[in-house]
Every structure is written in structure tokens, then in C-alpha cells.
Simulated assay, not measured.
Amino acid sequence: MEDWSLPGAPEISVRFRRSSRARRMSLRVSRLDGRVTLTLPRWAPEAQARDFLEQKAGWVRGQLAGRPAEIVPRFGGRLPVEGIEREICPAAGRKVVFSGGRIEVPGPEEAVPGRLAGALKVLARERLAAASNEYAARLGRPYNRLTLRDTRSRWGSCSSAGALMYSWRLILAPPEVLRYVAAHEVAHLRQMDHSPAFWAVVAELEPGYARPRAWLREHGTALHRYRFA
């Protein structure tokens, strides 16, 4: 079955997915990117799926209307970096510079999103490596490697082989939020589950982790509003 469009203004693209585990049809609107997914049981005919989608058209549009607007960084716009709202300004030179309440970006405006993304990833790696190194040293548990991705479903992970992965968008959040995620993932080097023993390790590394954890739950989705490509 090909993806289908929900007619109207604007037209909405809908992704169809069949699942052997689904017992009924269900609709999901992603809070991160607005993608609409209709999941069907293997047995459901296409005509029934289309009828179901048309019946739910009002609900889908309501969900999309409630999403924050996407933001593409441009000169004169603002972007949070380490929790501080900064103005994006044109600049000479070759490097992006984070200076107080400004982000100085060289080159033409159409290059701003890509150049910002590159500079943010460099800064994110620097901050996350520093925090991970600190916590791993305190636990006496070295990690294997550190990678950055633009993940949607999680802010970080730690494999059984000690490989750490983080979302580079954490650099947009306040520093204590980034450090909490680093403490969370490094804690898995000692305790791979999310048992009380695991949270005791997190508290050992970051005693005040509850506050940044709550911030991420409340505001984390907004970090995905920014589009760099």
C-alpha cells in the first residue's frame, strides 16, 4: 500500500504501515515532526483504512494545528545554545562564533542552517565528552566510544559494549540538562537497567538530576522545532 494524502488545505501526507501485531487501526501524529502514521492490521482492506482516515480528518488537523511552528535559523532570528537565546548575526571570517548573546555566522544566509549545525555538533561533542569523561572517571568505568546523532526517540543510549550515543541537540538545552543525560548514560556502564540501583548511580553522579530530567520532559520536544537542513 502506498502512502496517501488527506485532501484539504493544506493537503496532509499520511504514511501507511501494516503490522502483524496490530489488532485495530490506529493513527499517530508525531509531536516532533508532524508525521502522520496510520497503522493497520494485516487483514484490514485499503478501502476500510481510507474511510477510517477520512473519519479522523478533523482530529488529525487539530493535532497538527497544536504543534509549534518549525523554525529554520536565519540572520536576525534567535536560537538557544546552552540554554541561552542568542541572535544569529552575519559575520566575516570562516568560523561560527558563539559570543555572549550572539551567534556570528559567516557566509550567505542560505548557508546559515548548515554552518550552524556543524558548529553546534562540534560544541556538543566537546561538552558531552567532557561530562562523560568526568562521570566515567568517577565510576572507574571507561566507555568505548562516543557518537552524536540527531535522534528522535531518545536523548542518549549506552550499549553493553560501553558505546555512548547522544543527540547533538542537547547543546540547545541548559548545561545541567546536557550533564544529566551524560550522567544517565554513563551510569549504565555500571547498571544496565533502570532499577532503583541504577537511579542511585545517577544520583551519585548528579545529585540534583530530578530538575533537569523534568525540564527535558517538559521542553525537550521544542528542541526539535529547529530545522538545519
Rank of each mutant, 00 (worst) to 15 (best):
S5L: 14
L6T: 09
G8C: 00
A9S: 11
A9D: 14
E11S: 12
I12L: 07
V14R: 03
R15C: 07
R17H: 08
S19V: 03
R23C: 04
R24N: 12
G34M: 07
G34I: 02
G34V: 04
L38W: 08
R42I: 00
W43V: 00
R50N: 04
L53E: 06
A57E: 01
W59G: 06
W59I: 05
W59N: 02
V60C: 05
G62T: 01
G62R: 08
L64G: 09
G66L: 11
P68W: 13
E70C: 11
F75P: 11
R78L: 05
I84W: 03
R86D: 04
E87L: 15
C89W: 10
P90I: 05
R94T: 15
V96N: 02
V96D: 01
V97Y: 12
P108N: 03
P108L: 04
A111N: 04
P113F: 05
G114S: 08
R115K: 15
L116A: 00
L120Y: 02
L120W: 06
V122F: 00
R127M: 06
L128D: 02
A129G: 05
S132H: 04
S132Q: 00
N133E: 15
Y135Q: 07
A136H: 01
A136K: 03
R138A: 13
G140C: 10
G140D: 02
R141M: 07
L148H: 02
D150I: 01
C158R: 12
S159C: 10
L164V: 00
E176A: 07
L178M: 13
R179H: 06
R179E: 13
Y180Q: 09
Y180E: 12
E185D: 13
H188Y: 08
R190M: 12
Q191M: 05
Q191G: 04
D193C: 06
A197W: 02
W199I: 03
V202H: 09
A203F: 08
L205M: 14
E206V: 13
P207E: 10
Y209P: 02
P212K: 07
A214M: 11
W215Q: 14
R217I: 06
H224Y: 14
Y226M: 12
Y226V: 12
F228P: 05
